[in-house]
Design a protein around this nucleic acid. Structure first.
Lengths: 188, 188
DNA sequence: GTCTATAAAGTGATAGAC
DNA sequence: GTCTATCACTTTATAGAC
């Protein structure tokens, strides 16, 4: 189902992008309107306010994460290749992870309704990776030195941390070093 | 050298805390004044404006990180125990890492002067850990499966990511699981 | 459903008294 | 060096025309 790009959808997708780029606190209604090219009336006709729009924008980003990840998973046959595909897929380091960037936003995570939606994305990712690890251990391609939950946490944290560390050290090459080191320690 | 808590120092330390709690974009001059208990005149007498104060506050947080980490390092004798001490020291998960929280702040990292100060903290941490890994490999207590730089990146990213993932999954127990899994994979 | 005009509240900074 | 008063600007939201 392809969505029409009416004003409502333009606002949601514009806000989804701005939340990743600038964060909730630093995105003003005016920013949203300029970015989306619609008028102020539309915003307050379709949504109760900025935070209400943010909810649907976050939902959009989480749905995108799930959709894109399922696409990547479909490119490989076995658990090991699927895991590699996830870890090696091209990433927009500057912009950050579709859900990680939202989890890093204090204004989003201090609002229970918004935080729940972000958590939905994280929980989905956790389930997918944990399942892959289980299968990979059974298939004897992933080391069983760590329990599935342990390996899953190491993967999720390394991925999320890689964005921060390359930002903090202001050198994107560290992103790949972290991910390839992770693969080395996980694979048999 | 203990600093006097005059208005200038109160502003710096107040801003340092607010940057960790709320971020730069979401902290207003009024927030700073209320938190510090000083008047508006002092702020603009001692500093050029909000971002100027932010610079000194970031510097304060980075200096604190270095000071506290040196204290922790001094509690252990060998490289392996020092590394364990760093990874197992108690952390304020809700507030986040003293420098990681700053590196996650888009408003800070998009300002070159502020970002440089954050990078100083990251680069110091990278140097310390890389040195520990080198010694640990020589002492035969840390696995040499990963090169020192690789292990260092895995440590830094896991640490930073652990804050995000436990926030995203809204369950702090994942923080410890990630760190203990990391130790398991690094130690011989 | 979308736009422009308007307004209350908050932000960031300055002026001037003490 | 610190305070209060003030000001221009932005943010957030509403009203009402089309």
């Amino acid at each position: 189902m392809v969505k029409e790009h009416n004003s409502k959808q333009k606002l949601i997708e514009g806000m989804a992008e701005l939340l990743l780029e600038k964060g909730l606190a630093n995105t003003s209604p005016q920013d949203i309107l300029t970015y989306s090219g619609v008028g102020k009336g539309s915003l307050y006709h379709h949504f109760k306010g900025k935070e209400d729009l943010a909810f649907y924008a976050i939902k959009y980003n989480v749905d995108q994460l799930i959709y894109f990840t399922e696409q990547v998973l479909a490119t490989a046959d076995n658990a090991c290749d699927k895991l590699k595909a996830i870890l090696e897929k091209p990433r927009n380091i500057e912009r950050g992870c579709l859900v990680g960037q939202l989890a890093r936003d204090r204004k989003i995570m201090s609002d229970d309704k918004l935080a729940s939606e972000v958590s939905r994305g994280f929980e989905w990712m956790k389930l997918q990776i944990e399942e892959l690890i289980r299968k990979g251990i059974k298939d004897n391609c992933i080391s069983d030195k760590l329990a599935p939950l342990e390996a899953t946490m190491l993967i999720l944290t390394t991925l999320q941390g890689a964005y921060i560390v390359s930002k903090g050290l202001r050198d994107d090459t560290y992103f790949q070093i972290a991910l390839s080191s992770l693969l080395k320690t996980l694979m048999k």
